[in-house]
């Protein structure tokens, strides 16, 4: 299976996926660093460990396709094409942020890149994604909508109602569940009897698939199919990406009271970025110096974003009522 997939994916695309995952990883680690210095307001939920999902899914989306995200959404935003400068500035509450500092980490919108928002409410964006798919269907716009959510959302009513309506109306939407096994501190097996999210697709009579969420090739392949199905009138798909956040729920949560160190270490060892690099070097598709160059590019890209955000002005308090 893996071999077959990797044959479909050429070297250029592999390196793009690698670059994307590295950017998502390094961006989050930089945010963690800045957050810990106290210079960043609010609170942040980092995407470290789950990069393969956003990178692998968004690789098959067009700019006009839409992504609805979650509270852990920086990765989705970057993978959908939101410039790092605008995202970093938004996290900093700066005027140059993609929402002018009104939204912050959990309410970041960049519709010009098809990024329809992170969302502070678990399950809150699933109906919105299905609704946007309804609009795409009605307007014949050819857009596909991806709804990202975590395992925490699948036991909420919005998941059920949205999948049901999307199914009955055959909407062009992909439901992308990032099952990182914990809803904050609640282990998925403690929250629900049926721990297969993918199997729930049967309840709505739509295709469902479980995917190894730390293997970017697997993610890419499954997502591509689902997106294609949606775009060609085949209706919604439920994808369950088995993944893991190697950091805490949010910055400040050690993430160790409810998980064993061994479990965290095991998942860390399955790092999607490291494993892709090793695989490509092992198969002779790429060499060390290419990865070093990508690292250098990523460092420069990130420095630029930080410098831009840091030096940007804060919003003018007099504008607080604008857009009200």
């Amino acid at each position: 299976m893996q071999t077959a997939l990797s044959e479909e994916i050429d070297v250029e695309l592999s390196l793009d996926l690698y670059r994307c995952m590295l950017q998502l990883r390094d961006f989050e680690l930089k945010v963690q660093e800045l957050y810990r210095t106290g210079s960043m307001p609010g609170f942040v939920h980092l995407y470290v460990g789950e990069e393969a999902v956003a990178a692998g899914v968004c690789a098959s989306l067009k700019r006009e396709d839409l992504v609805y995200s979650t509270h852990r959404g920086h990765g989705h935003a970057l993978a959908k094409g939101v410039p790092a400068r605008e995202l970093m500035a938004e996290l900093w509450g700066k005027r140059t942020g993609c929402c002018g500092g009104r939204g912050g980490s959990m309410h970041t919108f960049a519709p010009e890149y098809g990024f329809m928002g992170t969302n502070g409410i678990v399950g809150g964006s699933i109906p919105l994604a299905a609704g946007s798919a309804l609009a795409a269907q009605l307007r014949n716009s050819g857009q596909v909508v991806v709804s990202f959510f975590g395992d925490g959302a699948v036991n909420a009513g919005s998941f059920h109602e949205s999948l049901n309506l999307a199914a009955v109306w055959n909407l062009p939407v992909v439901f992308a569940c990032e099952n990182n096994l914990y809803a904050t501190e609640m282990a998925f097996y403690r929250a629900t009897k049926n721990t297969s999210v993918a199997s729930r697709a049967a309840a709505y009579a739509i295709p469902g698939q479980e995917v190894d969420g730390v293997d970017v090739y697997e993610v890419y392949g499954a997502a591509k199919k689902a997106i294609q199905r949606a775009r060609t009138g085949g209706g919604p798909t439920l994808l369950e990406f088995k993944t893991y956040r190697t950091l805490g729920h949010h910055e400040g949560d050690p993430g160790t009271e409810y998980r064993t160190r061994e479990e965290v270490a095991q998942w860390k060892a399955r790092c999607p970025i490291k494993s892709l690099r090793e695989r490509m070097i092992g198969s002779g598709q790429a060499n060390e110096s290419q990865f070093e160059q990508i690292q250098k590019d990523t460092d420069a890209w990130l420095d630029d974003a930080v410098q831009f955000a840091k030096s940007s002005p804060t919003p003018d308090p007099q504008t607080v009522l604008e857009h009200s």
């Binding site: 109906p127 609704g131 309804l134």
Partner: peptide, 16 residues
Amino acid sequence: ELGETGLAIGAAMNGC
């Protein structure tokens, strides 16, 4: 109602 309302909002966010 939750689904209906959410879908309506989402449709409104995408050109309807």
